[in-house]
Write a protein that binds this DNA or RNA. Sequence first.
DNA 1: TTGAAAGCGCTAACAG
DNA 2: CTGTTAGCGCTTTCAA
Lengths: 323, 323
Amino acid sequence: MTIHDVARSAGVSRQTVSRALNDKAEIDGSTKQRVLDAARALGYRPSRFARGLVRPDTTTIGLVVPDLLNPFFTEVASGALEAARARGWHVVVHDTADDPDQELATLRVIGTQVDAVAGYFGRSDDDLARLTAGIPVVLIGREPRSPRFPGVGIDGEDGVREAVAHLVSCGHRRIGMLDGHPAPSVRRRWFLRAAAEYGVAVQPGWIAAGAQSVDGGGAALADLLAAHPDVTAVFAFNDVMAIGALREARRFGLRLPADLAVIGFDGLALGTLVEPELSSVAIDTRAVGALAVEQAARLVTGAEPLDPAELIVRARLHLRESA
Amino acid sequence: MTIHDVARSAGVSRQTVSRALNDKAEIDGSTKQRVLDAARALGYRPSRFARGLVRPDTTTIGLVVPDLLNPFFTEVASGALEAARARGWHVVVHDTADDPDQELATLRVIGTQVDAVAGYFGRSDDDLARLTAGIPVVLIGREPRSPRFPGVGIDGEDGVREAVAHLVSCGHRRIGMLDGHPAPSVRRRWFLRAAAEYGVAVQPGWIAAGAQSVDGGGAALADLLAAHPDVTAVFAFNDVMAIGALREARRFGLRLPADLAVIGFDGLALGTLVEPELSSVAIDTRAVGALAVEQAARLVTGAEPLDPAELIVRARLHLRESA
DNA sequence: TTGAAAGCGCTAACAG
DNA sequence: CTGTTAGCGCTTTCAA
């Protein structure tokens, strides 16, 4: 079903069909209507590729995230969108549902939709290279960083240390962690290292892991407290889990932060909506997205790419009410 | 910069370049490397359109939302994503920043990226028709519904009536509303009609309007209470605003729901994270997205489209703690 | 293993 | 106002 079929059906040339469809001036009203009717009758839809081939194009970059329902990723996306807008570029957001098959499927089609790709990927560098076949790729949050693709890194080490220092200074000695799958995470390593520095001997049982979601955080806290009710503070893999922990703690009848102090990671705007407001090892989520776009832009235009050191976003402790 | 330039630079034919880039088998290792080097040196990137033209294609639909940071739209997007996945299709999400210019820019490029468009648009039907030039369009939440494009409608009338009935049955007589811009909204009309039915004479000053955001909701409540501190309950344009109102009320030192009852609209998952948990006139947000995709799918494949009556999502009151 | 030819569906430029 | 011609950049036959 091409423009040719419509042309034949309407008894005109392809060019006339094109004119009718694109609302051009140089065409007779009745001819136009006839063409439009024929197109509708045939169920004709123009090929976006053929169009793109002959029309001036806008650069668009694809942002791939594992889960749009997680506000962390929407904040990153928002930063990316804004950075792209500043250049007059477009961003389309893809959701892989945190599923390797979906990620694969996305990678297969994305090459026909965008000029560069940025985002969160689980596949190996080799797979990525093969699937993206020549279009620029920027990884976000991949740890360890890839030698092959540039990536935006998140360095939470100092921030986590601040968090542990704060908890210790408040008198906490039994500090647990709610890790997120896949565990153990880098954030856990930062936590354990900081705890060791401050003389907190974290017992293996003080760490529980759960899905990176509100419910996962709640479940992890329940597990943790069931085995170790004497833990007085927890550091969560991210804010979403921390918020789940807050809710779970309330259900347990714990007072916050008196009975249990909670510190999250990410510094989401969401943290100011819950009660008590969430303390968090915060990163500039919008900067993460903006840097990814900036690097993608340099790759696309052939400008000098940003240096790995410039592509690191550092975390800082934001103290609010929950700790 | 085309495949031709690379071929010339590497001293091979275009097909050989194609083979090298796409990791095909029938190519000598050293030739491949030479081609790859030349491509890199030239900064060559294949045209996604030319590729799309000759490669089997996956259908993708574009979902256009005004603000990805608003969880309502991410819930809708999530429903759309899931419905598309069930058919093996893809969805890309576009954010227009609630800005007519961005919407225009998006519409201009979207035709080269997707096979159908669904979402929230402010432009006139004529503009939409011209800009989308033949690709199927599904409107979401447009009120009144367009005669030209199919759309998913939201009917909150019964739900709002339930909400007002509930408030009245709890003894509330001075019930205000926090409307969202652009005001007055359809939801306000539902509210006023329901209030009239239940004998509540809503004074003009009991209605304040604000941005459709957390801060907007907080500001609107502040305005409302400053002028009419005797209002004992408010219905908010949406949950996000309601949550802002909750926060503002806490800052005012009001007890919830004893001093002020709050009911939102949308039924977001977010509502269960705040304290008190938010009562809301809830709609099935995922169904909204799913219906939009379903209709787009029918338009794309030429199947019998869904009837306007089937494209309506009705709201129901979900009572939690805030009212 | 490589190259030549053909054509994907569309629109801009030009001719009529 | 309408049709003809000529590509856009790429990959897939098929032949060498």
